[in-house]
Amino acid sequence: MADKAAREEDAIHGVVERLNDAFSGAHGQAEVEAAVAQAHASFADRPVREFVPVLVERKARSILKDHAADADEA
């Protein structure tokens, strides 16, 4: 069980790294980490964990895109 949790955490760190690279011009590292944490927390009560990192990346990417669009409109 701990092995699965460690793999998930490693995958989430990978998500943070990929999104930092993808959004480095629009968002700081703290913003990316906050978006990933928010997305990850939204799946905390889900019993099936295999796809959580993929879902977290999609949701965090959406959050960051929405924030970038809001900043462009301001």
Rank of each mutant, 00 (worst) to 15 (best):
D45M: 04
A37I: 00
L55C: 07
D10H: 13
A22M: 12
D45K: 02
L55F: 10
D21P: 00
R49N: 05
V15E: 02
A60Q: 05
I63K: 08
A41M: 08
A74F: 15
H67W: 15
G14A: 07
D70P: 06
K59W: 07
G25F: 06
D66I: 03
G28V: 04
E33L: 00
L19P: 00
R58W: 07
F23W: 14
E17G: 08
G25W: 02
F23M: 10
V15S: 05
A30E: 11
A11T: 09
V56M: 11
F23E: 04
A44P: 01
R46L: 11
H27M: 08
H27Y: 00
A37D: 05
A44E: 12
D66N: 10
F51G: 10
A71K: 14
I12A: 01
A74W: 13
E57A: 06
A60V: 06
V48S: 12
P47G: 01
A68D: 04
L64M: 03
A68E: 13
V32P: 02
I63S: 06
A11K: 11
H67N: 15
R7W: 09
R7C: 04
G14N: 05
R18L: 04
A6V: 07
G25P: 01
S24F: 09
L55E: 07
H40S: 12
A39C: 11
